[in-house]
Design a protein around this nucleic acid. Sequence first.
DNA 1: ACTATGAATGTAACCGGTTACATCACGAAT
DNA 2: ATTCGTGATGTAACCGGTTACATTCATAGT
Lengths: 338, 338
Amino acid sequence: MTETTATIRDVASRAGVSVATVSRLVNNTGKVSEETAKFVRAAIRDLGFRPNAVGRSLSTSHTRSLGVVIPSLSNPVFADAVAGINAEARARGYTLMFTSTDYSPDDEVRTIGTLLDYRVDGVILTIADPMNNAALEILDSAGVPCILIYNLPSASEHPTVTVDNVAAGREVAQTLIGLGHQRLGMVSGSFAASDRAVARCDGFVDGVVGRGLPAPLILEVDFVDPNVEEALVPIYADRATAPTALFCSNDLLAISVIGVLGRMGLDVPKDVSVIGFDGIAVGTHLHPTLATVIQPSHEMGRVATQQLLDRLAGKESPITKILPHTYRPGESAGPAPS
Amino acid sequence: MTETTATIRDVASRAGVSVATVSRLVNNTGKVSEETAKFVRAAIRDLGFRPNAVGRSLSTSHTRSLGVVIPSLSNPVFADAVAGINAEARARGYTLMFTSTDYSPDDEVRTIGTLLDYRVDGVILTIADPMNNAALEILDSAGVPCILIYNLPSASEHPTVTVDNVAAGREVAQTLIGLGHQRLGMVSGSFAASDRAVARCDGFVDGVVGRGLPAPLILEVDFVDPNVEEALVPIYADRATAPTALFCSNDLLAISVIGVLGRMGLDVPKDVSVIGFDGIAVGTHLHPTLATVIQPSHEMGRVATQQLLDRLAGKESPITKILPHTYRPGESAGPAPS
DNA sequence: ACTATGAATGTAACCGGTTACATCACGAAT
DNA sequence: ATTCGTGATGTAACCGGTTACATTCATAGT
């Protein structure tokens, strides 16, 4: 059972041909007569030969593998993107080398280094901040093509697949204002760890002050261990001045916030409205259902992979794609209390 | 910037030594005088040399990479396990090749084939059914060590890291009966795609009939596109005979069920109690909070990886580990309606 | 003084593929 | 008859590491 796996030379000798012929048949490169082909196929079948990808990679200097680097799998939004990446990569015969960084820039460069050692053909990644990012520099100087997802388009010239976070933030502000809210707030994951959180916030603030309302209250919490309770309790000690609506930089945060508000005796949406961001599936099953901005995560992963793979196939280089986001109304956002 | 990456021979010639010496220094194998070491280190630094993992793998015939095969990333339970695997693997210098199979046995064997082509040193996987599984057979005949997670221990002799699903199912039954419920039901993901769903159901049924109650109603839904609505509506057309408590084979399903019940005008837990399985984080933030059985997913991933890596390091072979599960009470499970 | 021992290093084969180039046979064109 | 093109195949170098084995040299033992 545990026979040593057959090599191309085994196949060649069993079929009475040279390794070149076997290789040509296996890869459809160069001609081989139908007559010989039959022998070779038989030998391949008999020996259960499957070409060793390591040997092949060494000689071709490409691996048909892609690196995937994302902050965390705990957030379904990234899990969905990885699912999209996986689907597209598989369909085109590529394999994924995966790592998550827990939002740590140190881990970003460490992991990129490893991926480069393994000679991945390209990398799909979401990083803390694409401006002056060490990981991207390493990638560039190694000449390995890459594409960002979720990250903002930036002067760094690296293509990205994302949504218009600023516009979305602004729309959330307008939606909330349209519902009569005047005192607004934002609960965001750490700005240092997320350029998109910054953009969503920027858009939100712009939307709020653009309508002549006072700037929203901004609460920043940690990504890995967000202590929402600690942030919210002091604010809602005085309900008369506290925000009647909160925009959260992602759905997971929004769900936490709703839970905490409930435990503080505040009703969502009667007392406070909450809008999230991401559109994770579970949001539609909650009670109240979660109002949120949907980003097409699976599609984003797919499109990014597609572009990267096209590039590797010698076609056009990846370009930044801004995919459409949509506001999904939900019970968590209602009219301002009177 | 885009200099071709330096090879060990470049380093050797720049340092005026042989490749063997460089290799010995890099890998701490064999002696090299401090004097020479200095030159070599300098050359490595100057050239930015990093050993090519592909070349190394070819000659050592191991890759320091692990294959990870799971049904889906959409379920946070698997995402958590992968996070645990990632953490442990990284800590020990291993890289992950990742694929998801969407619960398809065909995909299982396809993806295992690819992983084997890349010569992963070991595989961590969750499959539909470990009995007579084609993927496991391939792995065995290739002599690649593997360890299951979530799957049940079985006659197949493959070690697995999981919880006692039968006992957990029985406990759920007892909990519900203790709350006064008499008409019980189970909503489960496809049995064909999940041996653990079968076990949870077995335990549940056993717990119910063991107490002299009529066998629970069993509803089976698809994993990838579970149409809970369609399953539940006919059952609750007659509320007098419908179950007053439902055990769901996973939390995602439970959340759906709660949503659907709510939309049918039924209150959870006043009219119907619901208990899930998995203990995904979001459950604690829901309203009502989700009663569930917690499995230590992150830990399961970690332990499995640890065992596999120990085995690869020449230590003991992996053995089946049954990790403790815990019942987490939640608002979704309450006393039976009178 | 002579050999045994061991440290430091180098040479070259090997891992499993790919592929440039050479070779050979055969029929067509001149 | 000679030349040429083309199809089919083989030879061997190469990708970038590792490592068994050989070699050299200095030192310790007798």
